[in-house]
């Protein structure tokens, strides 16, 4: 059983969390978005082996946050709420 750090609640059981997606995958805007760009946004992923930055949600409290972890060792480097993440440069 692994503990994940919710920025709001602190360390909690991994089963309480849900994976959202890779961080930084922003929805394209406007009417003229070409099909290739939509495919990129909807389906294409870096799927990195090693260090990664992802969006997670703590289902029990509803907090969405960014988590940095390693996809091989599963070690978590840290997590930050999305509100705070936006304020970073």
């Amino acid at each position: 059983m692994q503990l994940f750090p919710c920025p709001f609640c602190g360390p909690r059981d991994e089963a309480e969390f849900h994976y959202g997606g890779e961080a930084g995958n922003l929805r394209p805007d406007g009417r003229e978005v070409p099909a290739g760009r939509w495919a990129d946004y909807l389906h294409m992923r870096a799927n990195p082996k090693g260090a990664t930055r992802e969006i997670w949600v703590h289902v029990t409290c509803g907090e969405f946050f960014a988590m940095e972890r390693d996809t091989v060792t599963h070690k978590v480097a840290g997590s930050v709420s999305l509100g705070e993440a936006e304020q970073q440069p």
Binding site: E14, Y19, T71, V72
Partner: peptide
């Protein structure tokens, strides 16, 4: 498993 992974072990839950 519920967590994207390249760790060839698997998680307990």
């Amino acid at each position: 498993d519920r967590i994207p992974s390249y760790g060839q072990r698997g998680n307990l839950p």
